[in-house]
Amino acid sequence: MKADPAVQRRLLDLAEVDGELARLAHRRRTLPEHAELTAAEEAVRAGKDKLVEVETAAGDLDRDIRRIERDVEGVRARTERDNQMLASSGIGAKQATDLQHELETLARRQGVLEDEQLEVMEQREAVGVDVEHSRGVLAAAEQELSAITERRDNALADIDASEAGRRRAREEVVATIPADVLAVYERRREQRGTGAALLVARRCQACRLELDRTAIAELKAAPADELVHCEECGVILVRTEGSGL
């Protein structure tokens, strides 16, 4: 295929723009914020799970405290009633003895309940500290996630802007290249990742390999307007005075 040497040189401009676009795409895929976001999201999930765990434990203890308080109030009410009955006139000796025995039992029961209440309240206080700590950890994790998300979004916005500029530049270059030559370039780029490269000192700048004598002889013999390819990687080779031919 024939292509004016000036058109061939524009293929190098196109290859440079495509290389920049490829690097931007690679940067987009490999932003460190992607991995940081994954870790930050996991930290938030773990923080939420831990907070639910300690808040559940706190709720269970709160229910225990309320139950014990109801039991204590019940014992106190029963004790007050028995004391009133014991202090009233007209009760027999046996009833007084039974009431006294019940009061002793109620006193022991109240003591057990109050000890249990104290123990549960101490547990609740400790869990309360865990709840506040977990809330702080979760808040910090969410703040870190927000900061990383903002950095990621800013980085992507920069890449978007750079890509937009490079695509405009690509359109400008493509407009100067004949359709048939461009089609060959695009096929090579799709197959090899690079469509065209400069030949410098008998070395292809795409695969970085030095061509053998047979290939060099063929390139020397090819007219300047002939579209030639690297025998090693297949890209279009653009020849200049520095190609060593």
Score class of each variant (00 low, 15 high):
residue 98 D to R: 13
residue 61 L to C: 05
residue 117 Q to A: 09
residue 63 R to N: 08
residue 97 T to C: 01
residue 89 S to C: 00
residue 122 E to Y: 03
residue 98 D to T: 08
residue 112 V to T: 15
residue 116 E to N: 13
residue 74 G to R: 11
residue 110 Q to H: 04
residue 88 S to H: 04
residue 117 Q to N: 05
residue 140 A to T: 04
residue 64 D to A: 10
residue 75 V to F: 10
residue 63 R to D: 09
residue 81 R to C: 01
residue 138 L to V: 01
residue 119 E to D: 14
residue 125 E to C: 02
residue 61 L to A: 07
residue 124 R to I: 01
residue 103 L to M: 15
residue 77 A to P: 00
residue 73 E to T: 05
residue 119 E to F: 09
residue 118 L to Q: 09
residue 64 D to T: 08
residue 77 A to N: 09
residue 67 R to P: 02
residue 98 D to A: 14
residue 75 V to M: 07
residue 80 E to P: 00
residue 102 E to T: 15
residue 131 V to R: 11
residue 94 K to W: 04
residue 130 D to N: 05
residue 111 G to V: 11
residue 120 V to I: 15
residue 104 E to H: 06
residue 89 S to K: 14
residue 63 R to A: 14
residue 70 R to E: 15
residue 84 Q to P: 00
residue 125 E to N: 09
residue 69 E to T: 02
residue 142 E to L: 01
residue 86 L to Y: 02
residue 60 D to P: 01
residue 80 E to A: 12
residue 121 M to P: 00
residue 116 E to A: 15
residue 109 R to T: 14
residue 125 E to I: 03
residue 121 M to V: 14
residue 98 D to H: 08
residue 61 L to I: 10
residue 70 R to L: 09
residue 128 G to M: 04
residue 87 A to G: 15
residue 117 Q to H: 12
residue 121 M to C: 08
residue 107 A to R: 13
residue 108 R to N: 10
residue 135 R to C: 01
residue 140 A to P: 01
residue 83 N to V: 10
residue 127 V to M: 06
residue 95 Q to Y: 00
residue 73 E to V: 00
residue 107 A to E: 14
residue 73 E to A: 11
residue 138 L to G: 03
residue 66 R to L: 13
residue 131 V to D: 11
residue 83 N to Y: 03
residue 89 S to N: 10
residue 135 R to Q: 06
residue 91 I to V: 14
residue 112 V to C: 00
residue 109 R to P: 00
